[in-house]
Every structure is written in structure tokens, then in C-alpha cells.
Amino acid sequence: MTYNFKEIMNKKERLAPGHRMCAGCGGTIAVRNILRGLRDQDQAVITCATSCLEVSTFMYPHTAWQDSFIHNTFENAAATCSGVQAAYEVLRKKGRVDGTYKFIAFGGDGGTYDIGLQSLSAAMERNHDMVYVCYDNGAYMNTGIQRSSATPLYADTTTSPVGKLSKGKPQYRKDLTAIMVEHNIPYVAQTTLFRNMRDIHEKAARAIYTPGAAFLNVMAPCPRGWVYETADIMEICRLAVDTCYWPLFEVIEGQWVLNYKPTNKLPVEEFLKKQGRFKHLFKKGNEQLIEHFQAEVDKRWRVLLERCGS
């Protein structure tokens, strides 16, 4: 499959401009690139968990969504989407729907790793023909940057604040992508906004057009929560991948595939130092914290290489 950057980027936007998402928001870029995975002739129903994305794109009486869209609550995007998809199957058999529809649910990491995990797990286990996309910005950004189970070790958030007795979040982040792989669904992938967007585009298209359940975990930086200059987003994503903090891989029918192996694996501090949420790690006396962080990244990278047979 050839990837033509210009052609893909010039596809008709399915998330119209004029929504209220922040400048430099990784979530918006992720969503637009996922939607580019849809074939132009196909229609979609988008489900969205309560999130920045939902409250900023569908504020009555305006919507930025060109396709049909449903928001229900915080924790039930997967269950809601499964209901829409089941309705489609029945109504199509009865001849009451025209054309081909695809079903994509979006949730942030709070709505996916935490409060929505039960609903997601069950919808995936039932293997509905749908894609669940987590745009993972590593905290509850919509409510003001509270820690989630996706928040990385030592990140400064409003509920894991750095203080006299605190170095930020004391726990490691949950590996949700691996958890979803264990559901034995047809397709799971991890991606981010990397270079020319080929990786996210191809994974979106594959997820959308794989029959059955698919899950995509997309790292989507948040300038407010991560504290970086908005123009730096692509560089931060590149560093996440080149430090192996956020590796790019996919699992197709149970087969683990590593999509990118950096020729020069960078130290994780290259990724950390760009972000204000980690600035305390660079104070004198905190060197061992970066070592802990590096050790965890290395451990997870080794496990991934083993799984991928690389």
C-alpha cells in the first residue's frame, strides 16, 4: 500500500474547523487522522465519551461532526457504540439502512483506562464490528489535569502534585494496549502523531476495515497538561517513539508486529525534559528518579521486543 501524504491530508475533513479544542491539542490531530482512515464513500456513526473532545465539538446548537454522532456519558462509549452497531446489523437485514456504515468510538484515557474500562472490555469481548480509539493524553485534562491510570510515573498533576513529600505520581502507568491484546480481538495497535502520519493513518484504516472489534491507543499530547510550547507537539511525539517510551506496534490476529525500531534509542530524559510536568526531575538530587523512569521504559521495551520476536 503506497502512502501519499498530500492526498491523504487533502481528504474532506469529517471534523469541521471551528470547534473549540485548544491550539496544539494532540487529541484533535489524532481524531482527524483516524477519520481519514474512512473511505470517502462510507458513512460513519461516531460515539464519544464525555471528554474535552465531546464538550468542545458538540456544544448545542453547533456540531463539528459531519457524520452522525452520539455522546452518552463518561464511562459508556463502548457500550453505546455496541448498541448502535447491533442496531445497524438488524436494520440492514431488514433493508432499512442505505449504504455502508462504520462505527468509531473515541474516549480519553480517563474514559478508557479508568471509568470506561468495564464497558470497553465487554464490548471488545463481544467482538462488535467497531473501533475503539483511546486518545491518551495521560490525565483527566478536561476537568483540570488530574492523574489517571495512564499518567506516567512522576508526572506532576493536580491530584498527584509535586510537593515537599511528593515527587509527582508514585505509580507506573497501566499498559492498556497489552490488556486489550489479551482480549484476543482481531486487531489492536498503538500509535501516535509520528512524522508524516503514515503510521496512524494505516492503523486507522486497518482497524476500521477489519471485521470485528479493534482497539487503537493513540498517544495525544496535551499542551496544558504536559506544559510544552504548542509548536513542539510533533517533536515531543517523535521523542516518545525514539526513546521507546511509546513504541509503535500492532497485533494482528494475535501476531505482535513492531512497526518501528529506532536505530539510535534515545535516553528517556530527551522526552521528559521538553515537558513542564517533569521539570522537578531535573532538579539537583533527583537524578535517581530519571533512572527509575528509564529502567521501566527499558523493561517494557524488552518485553515488547520479545513479544514481537525482534
Binding site: 456513526v45 452520539i70 455496541s82 448498541g83 447491533a86 438488524v90 468495564q118 465487554a122 464490548a123 463481544r126
Partner: peptide, 28 residues
């Protein structure tokens, strides 16, 4: 019957799925 039966994992999801299917145009 011609009904799609969704064996959900909780009542919260039962009603959430019903909201999705009814909104989609299906009697639920």
C-alpha cells in the same frame, strides 16, 4: 424473533447500549 440480543456485562451497559440502538433507529 429478528432481534439482536446484546448480552452486556452490567445494567449500566444494558441501558447505554439501548440508548445507542434506539438512537440508531432500532426499537429497543
Amino acid at each position: 424473533v429478528d432481534t439482536a440480543f446484546i448480552p452486556v456485562e452490567s445494567e449500566h451497559s444494558a441501558m447505554s447500549a439501548a440508548i445507542g440502538s434506539q438512537a440508531a433507529g432500532a426499537r429497543s
